[in-house]
Design a protein around this nucleic acid. Sequence first.
RNA 1: GGGCGCGUAGCUCAAUUGGCAGAGCAACUGACUCUUAAUCAGUAGGUUGUAGGUUCGAUUCCUACCGCGCCCA
Length: 515
Amino acid sequence: MALDEDIYEIRREKLKKIEALGHPAYPRKYNYSHTVPQILAEYSGQTAEELESARVTVRVAGRIMTIRLMGKAGFAHLQQDGQRLQIYVKKDAIGDAGYELWKLLDLGDHIGVRGYLFRTRTGELSIHAEELTFLAKDLLPLPEKFHGLTDVELRYRQRYLDLVMNAEVREVFLKRSKLVQSLRRYFDGQGFMEVETPMMHPIAGGAVARPFKTHHNTLDMDLFLRIAPELYLKRLTVGGFDRVYEINRNFRNEGLGWKWNPEFTMLEAYQAYTDYLGILDTTQSAIEQAVKNVTGGTKTKWGEHEIDWSHANWRRMTMREAILHFWPEKAGAKPERSDFAAHESVKALVGRVRGAGISLKYDAAEPVGKTIANIFEAVAEEHLMQPTIIYEFPTVISPLSKQKPDEPDWTERWEIFAGQMEIANGFSELNDPEDQRQRFEGQLKERERGDDEAHQMDENYINALSYGMPPAGGVGVGVDRLAMLFTDSHTIRDVILFPLLRPEKTSPAEAEEEK
RNA sequence: GGGCGCGUAGCUCAAUUGGCAGAGCAACUGACUCUUAAUCAGUAGGUUGUAGGUUCGAUUCCUACCGCGCCCA
């Protein structure tokens, strides 16, 4: 039998034999002289003759990914930091005891190797092993060495195997890390202070979304996982931290999809004494810098497309302009700007969009501004491949934004789109406590109408504003989505190390119990 | 939540019209002191996602459920 558990038993026996040879089964450490990538970087240029005359001795640690045995010698590849280096193990060179250990090693084991660098007859840089050190055993078999691990479900459920087997997956997460690092350095460099605000909120505010609920036992109070840190960060601007940012998780109790995960990472930043255009400049620069730091250039591949992030390529249009610009031919003549002003004319636009075969949710009782935003999403969003700034959002869907002085139905708010995704959202922060109260009251009416995503009243926040919040621009940037765009990953799950999955029901009884 | 698709050995995949469930890698035994998807000889490994149904006979057809994916809401 060679079931999984039997391989486990066979390898446990091998581990006992390794111990019997005098090697600890789980040693504490190994002092390596080089990492595998360091050796490849430093010695790849050297010829066989150069290596022979220099006789470079190294100590390297890694996981065994291939083994080729030939009688009393053999080759293996060690993998470390996603790169591989070949070792040559010859009985003459490592001695009888060393060879006994060598024969007990399996694919996936961690070992240390001391030896000298040389080139094989085929020219591959390798270590001529003189001493093997056992470091850790792999008791379960790795996925197949040639095809690797491709099953999507297993890749997510056992991400560690995905990372061992698939170098490109490893690369995606390295890039994600560089992205976060770049954003952090950029905002630090601009004088922003990184802060941490609560993840558990008595009132889930700062965005329109359904929250997750939890409960604190000692205080016997319900709490909500935050849907946004916004209201706390703005309290800090009241407190005199003029430039603050936070990079952390938000939680929204909504569906899953290619660009939606219930927990996702957002950068939020607030900059006092500027408005939506000021924070837009900051955001755009941060993103342009991040593209360079992560990819080394200004262009990224996105499926069939190429996204050009260079400054001159960013487009800018108002939401209303975007609707006109991307108005579908099948929906007839482009709307007039005045069509956006009245309930009846907007309703007529809905009919024309639907007539063009585009699905669009519409409730005649909903405010005009909400309908216009829905029309924008229906007709324009799919066309926003290159970086595009859409600005001027309806007031009714922007309860935390300052209104335009000349058009109170519209706010000083923008969103950045790229790759058909919203990736950032910024505005002139509403700091008038009385206006804020009215906006919340308006939201409560929406809630009564049946919109359970509408914002709740937050007296505590209004109280903070009443002490005087400086004028400020603020922004939220979707870090996962930027990571998707920078790595050509077309599902958010490919940029989240451990995405949410349903629990596996391993036995029928378990599934039955669930019912 | 709805529609469509997928689920076969540890991994990657086959299986003709409903007719003995197979291969490669991994594993085990043996040979081999420059291989690299090493090679050669041999061995073992399966409740075909789960539970039912139709049938002489089900991986294959039907129903329900579980999980995953895609599209829609």
